[in-house]
Design a protein around this nucleic acid. Structure first.
Lengths: 139, 139
DNA sequence: TAAATATATTGTAGTGATTACAAATCGAAA
DNA sequence: TTTCGATTTGTAATCACTACAATATATTTA
């Protein structure tokens, strides 16, 4: 996804593509690392020295509102963001802190008891020990 | 579950059953309403006038650590707690704020990509409009 | 082009849930 | 009853996030 496409994408979601917004969305697309506000700010401030953290907060809130980005609340203390809007789950390693994506068969989840409930958001979070950290511990 | 059973349960989980701990756990078992710290405090302070909010925090953290209670992070700003340790999902209505339980076939979730990952916690959160609130809106 | 208007960005000062910590209190064992 | 360790309390601090007013930038209109 190049800058032109990002611009189109934002416009399609009724977001005026300012320079900062383009850069922040680009960061999310290029780094699928589920970053926090703080990380995004730190990674972009060198390239955009006038960037303020408030702008990062404002921009991400706007993206979430407009449905361009999803908010991940797998962390208790900090919000994370993901440009991948498809239905998928997140796994957070309790040891290294890394957040992994994994596919989810949403339809296979038996949601009895929720007849006539209108589902707008789904968050599937697992926590434990990732592959790599398990291997390290076994050594 | 009467007080005697609660006492046994806490002991089984290596939690010394003090009066406050018994009362807080009892509240969680009797009110399956996924309460916040604030709600638990407000509901119990009349009966236990010396109760402090810090104790509620300490106690719930202890319960979660010992695996007697699960922490629900479906809310962005406040933690909620659930004495039901079985695998199940939570639905939060965006309109009335109520949190519902629903059964989940965990085994049906296709978790490709997570081979050799050791899962210790699962959190399945849905958000949208509950049955009742939909009916109200349609009127 | 320049003025007028709207929008985006910034910086500072809050807010509110949670935690740290030290003092006070309680409870079991000797 | 005294002692010692665990529990509870209250206050102060922390920290992610938000409110808001001021400034800067972009867009529209004349």
């Amino acid at each position: 996804m190049d800058i032109k496409e990002i611009e189109k994408f934002l416009k399609f979601n009724q977001i005026k593509p300012s320079h900062h917004r383009l850069k922040i969305y680009e960061y999310l697309v290029k780094n699928k690392n589920h970053p926090t506000v703080d990380l995004i700010y730190k990674e972009l401030v060198d390239e955009i020295p006038t960037l303020s953290k408030t702008t990062v907060y404002n921009t991400l809130n706007l993206f979430v509102e407009k449905g361009a980005v999803q908010l991940i609340t797998i962390d208790e203390s900090e919000n994370r963001y993901d440009a991948d809007m498809s239905i998928h789950g997140h796994f957070k390693c309790k040891h290294c802190g890394k957040v992994y994506d994994f596919p989810v068969k949403f339809s296979a989840m038996d949601m009895g008891g929720l007849q006539n409930f209108q589902v707008e958001e789904n968050h599937i979070y697992l926590k434990g020990l990732c592959n790599e950290c398990q291997i390290k511990k076994e050594v």
